[in-house]
Amino acid sequence: MQNTLVTESENDRILEGERELVAEIVAGNHERYYELIAPIERRVYYTAYAILRTEADAEEVSQEAILKGFRGLRTFRGEARFSSWLLSIVANEARMRLRQRREVSLELLKSPDNEDEYTPIELADWREIAVEALAQKELAAHLEEALEALPEIYREVLILRDIDGFTIAETSAALEISVPAVKTRLLRARLMARDYFVSRSWAGHLGLGKA
């Protein structure tokens, strides 16, 4: 959704700028690597945290991925944004770490049955539910909770696509699953996240995006 805000010509200009910057860094002006990292630090950390769920691991993986990005900068082709490239590295590293840490059984990684059978909670009108005046902080905590509540395979697609702004194709590449699988999981993940809010009577928040 974030991607639609950038027009194609703007995107080309950004890509061109990034390619020039990368070439300069690779040629020896290393300090300029900060310029690539600074705008996406939050997303780097958050992607790692969203997958790993512990601050210490998230920071370690963030650092490793940023380092890996620097060392592998020569291989960055500049066909996609640097942010997508680096965030894919972060997602990969985080998932590898998760596997090591939890020794996740194959069971967990397998798709559950009836992946596309999901019935969202019915709601006549969310504005009819009493609006709780919650502070931004509480709202952030609720979002964390909602993400936490999602099964891993749904959390991952939601984070990459809807928080990091990956395209469907980028999400598919980062998670090594097919495009149709991304779409199926995304539908389920979005409806589940939405239901988490609805079922907690925080539905007042769902009106926030509206005028």
Binding site: Q2, L143, D162, G165, F197, L206
Partner: peptide, 15 residues
Amino acid sequence: AVLLDSTHNVLVLLA
């Protein structure tokens, strides 16, 4: 329509 709007708004919050 409500389902669509509320789902959309969750995504706005997430982003």
